[in-house]
Design a protein around this nucleic acid. Structure first.
Length: 619
RNA sequence: GCCCGAGUGGCGCAAUGGUAGCGCAACCGACUUGUAAUCGGUAGGUUAGAGGUUCGAAUCCCCUCUCGGGCUCCA
């Protein structure tokens, strides 16, 4: 019952420690709201906090925002910034606040919920113009695009916002910012409440930092696995098949297969047994497990076969449990570790699907460990080491560990939760792994450790997860015979060390920007004869390399060498071996790397060794 | 699921109510080439699907599907 890995698309960058920047971002949100007030009279205001790299503000407007609005709002913000309006803090009692924000239902709601008898408000006051507090009523007509506003001195009105602060001294301190996008967002994050329009912006202390950030975003766009998946011909998703369902093309399938082979071999070395279990099972099984009651919304509806209800499996654990239960087990056999690259299907709401990273059918690199309670620590330690081994081999240097503790709704006794949580904590400390505690985020059946992988651009992806389970062994009466001859419930550990093949590939594609290390590259060497007379020697070299299990492609088309190089380059093939008269005469090749580097001539033995060494190094 | 936006040959794009075009790819032919695109030709689209408005719809309206940006969710 592995926790569906969480997807965080633009995850944590190094958390900005600079508090001043945080304050400035918050003030930028305030200025954004002031700009919107002046351009959209009658706007209702939600909240506008600073966030990673920037800020946002939520508005309730009479018409939907369009992308063309952003530059206009941005210009207005620049005016306000140029006017260098001071931020004035005031403390008022709640009655006064209610009066000030009489036309602002969202603000009123916030005020009512504040515990203190007084609240703080911030004003930016500008120029000789009459104030427009938020209480002003106004009309907002629908128009294709707001009229451009020209900057002028002292034109701003007063903007007052409910806010704890702090703010910068005056709007002029807001330096480098840019509005980035518009989105819908539920008021207070509650899907039953109105949807507001959110404007996002980024802001930094200097223009240079802003530009760095924007170029990093541009780089991220280039590395987007959905884009690279198409460009590199790795996978596709078809309207005709259905959303969230993946077709792996030969090259993507090859990468996946290499990873799976590696995975299987490493598991075998560590005492795991590989198993296979069916993709459908009788509905009663899922009723016994509790899935039918707890997660019905995520399951595909049952199908009827010969009067029996069957269901597509949303996880692999039940098959593994039945394999375990197929014999009476002794404590001497424990731990038993069943591993399966198990494909599961879960209904995900349409709006949440995302490339390979959030799909409806996916293959977990799953395993279930059946052990005694006192074996948890050792097993978890083994899993953590395996997970680290995997991360290292795939080039991930940074990851965060999260220990999730008991949620409000839980199965099992407090005592057993306490012990299990302590075991996990103890292992993390013994292995000297830094971790954070995620209070109450455990699964109902037990505590867990999640690993969030950071790719080359710092985006965090939910990867491996380790979950202790006290629930299923009870529901299915999964037991072993102890030393004393008595039956005891096993402890189950659900775990993945990659997450799912789909999401892991998404993460890998973005991590490497599509330039996979040699061991994973679908084509490791492109052999490029210059003219047709070099083709037969090129095939000879190709055969030599293929004999060493190097994945090679001889580009024997009657095309120009530069075209072949260009195409190999776009395919991100690590080695390009150029063959002309010189190479043919000297029984060698000239080597070009995908970074453009020209290695020059090598003989066939040397190039074999070079490529084999790169494969071996997994680099 | 919700808000907003988008869907045009395999891919990337153009055409804002009046004959659906361009580049790449594909196919055919010529060129035989030294480190990121040789030249010429041919073929390919009932404009996501269904309905409506109109003399006339890629274009305007309605519904459905899919995708994108977010929100919510993610055992």
């Amino acid at each position: 019952m592995i926790n569906r890995p969480l997807h965080t698309k633009f995850g944590m960058m190094a958390r900005g420690k600079d508090e001043h920047v945080e304050v400035m971002r918050h003030s930028a949100a305030h200025v954004l709201a002031q700009a919107v007030q002046s351009l959209f009279p009658g706007a209702k205001f939600g909240i506008g906090p600073p966030i990673e790299n920037g800020f946002y503000y939520d508005f309730d407007l009479l018409r939907p925002l369009i992308p063309e609005d952003l530059p206009v709002i941005e210009n207005k913000m620049r005016e306000i910034i140029n006017d260098n309006l001071p931020f004035i803090k005031e403390e008022v009692d709640k009655d006064t606040a209610h009066r000030i924000f009489a036309a602002q239902p969202y603000k009123l709601e916030l005020i009512s919920e504040l515990p203190d008898s007084t609240v703080t408000i911030y004003r930016t006051e500008g120029g000789p113009h009459p104030p427009h507090p938020l209480s002003g009523e106004g009309q907002l007509e629908r128009r294709p695009s707001p009229p451009p506003t020209l900057s002028g001195e002292g034109r701003q009105g007063t903007f007052t916002d409910l806010c704890r602060g702090p703010h910068v001294a005056s709007t002029g301190e807001i330096k480098a910012f840019k509005l980035t996008h518009i989105a819908g967002a539920y008021w207070r994050g509650d899907e039953n409440r109105p949807m507001l329009q959110r404007i996002y912006g980024v802001a930094f202390a200097t223009q240079a930092e802003l530009e760095d950030y924007l170029s990093l975003q541009a780089e991220a766009t280039k590395r987007d696995h959905r884009k690279l998946g198409k460009e590199l011909d790795l996978f596709s998703i078809h309207e005709e098949i259905g959303p969230g369902l993946i077709c792996w093309h030969p090259k993507g399938a090859l990468i996946r297969q290499i990873i799976e082979d590696f995975w299987k071999a490493e598991h075998a070395k560590r005492g795991y047994d590989i198993v296979y279990t069916p993709h459908i099972a009788k509905l009663d099984l899922w009723k016994t497990s509790g899935h039918w009651d707890f997660y019905r919304d995520y399951l595909y509806p049952p199908m009827e076969i010969e009067g029996q209800q069957y269901m597509l499996k949303p996880m692999n654990c039940l098959g593994h449990i039945l394999i375990f239960k197929s014999q009476t087990r002794s404590y001497r056999q424990l731990p038993l570790r069943y591993a399966e690259l198990g494909t599961v299907y879960r209904y995900e709401r349409s709006g949440v699907l995302y490339g390979l990273a959030r799909v409806r059918g996916f293959t977990q690199d799953d395993a279930h460990i059946f052990c005694r309670f006192d074996q948890i620590e050792e097993e978890v330690a083994g899993i953590l080491k395996l997970a680290q081994f995997m991360m290292n081999n795939f080039g991930f240097k940074n990851y965060d560990l999260l220990l999730s503790t008991r949620p409000e709704k839980y199965a099992g006794t407090l005592e057993i939760w306490e012990q299990a949580t302590q075991s996990l904590q103890h292992v993390l400390e013994k292995l000297d792994l830094p971790y954070e505690i995620d209070p109450g985020e455990g699964v109902f059946y037990g505590p867990k450790i999640d690993i969030k992988i950071k790719d080359a651009l710092g985006h965090a992806w939910q990867g491996p997860t380790i979950q202790v389970d006290f629930n299923l062994p009870l529901r299915f009466n999964v037991c072993y015979i102890g030393e004393d001859g008595k039956e005891r419930n096993v402890t189950m550990i659900h775990r993945t060390v990659l997450g799912s093949m789909e999401r892991f590939l998404a993460c890998l594609i973005e991590h490497y920007g599509g330039a996979f290390p040699v061991w994973l590259s679908p084509v490791q060497a492109a052999i490029i004869p210059i003219a047709d007379r070099h083709v037969s020697y090129a095939h000879h070299v190709g055969n030599e390399l293929a004999r060493e299990n190097i994945r090679v492609r001889v580009d024997d088309r009657s095309e120009r060498m530069t075209l072949k190089i260009r195409e190999a380059q776009l395919e991100k093939i690590p080695f390009m071996l150029i063959i002309g008269d010189k190479e043919m005469a000297s029984d060698g090749v000239s080597i070009r790397l995908r970074n453009g580097e020209d290695i020059g001539w090598e003989n066939i033995g040397q190039i074999k060794e070079r490529i084999k060494a790169a494969i071996e190094a997994k680099s």
